[in-house]
Amino acid sequence: MAKGVRPRVKAPRSAEAGEVVVIKTLISHKMESGQRKDSDGNVIPRSIINRFTCEYNGAMVVDVEMHPAISTNPYFEFEATIPEAGDFQFTWYDDDGSVYEETKTVKVG
């Protein structure tokens, strides 16, 4: 697991049924692009988060395919529809096989 990777998510704690809400996600990750060289001239191998998904009660909100051009500490802002109370599940997939997760619960009414 890459060191010091932590997510930070903004999701509303409550919403009206059917409301569209703005979600902001951040995760601290170096996103080593594979373009850099170390002081000996050797290429530092690529090591990035290559996919991010957000689901609400199992339904897909957004599924992002990520490339090295996404900046260090990947940030995404997007919108989701809240049909009823439930949970957001955020998942980040690392090149090295690690999976990072975060959950946020939303109350309705």
Partner: peptide
């Protein structure tokens, strides 16, 4: 202007 746009805040969490 927003603590969730400010990437520095993730280091406050750390």
């Amino acid at each position: 202007m927003d603590d969730f746009d400010n990437s520095g805040m993730i280091f406050v969490d750390a």
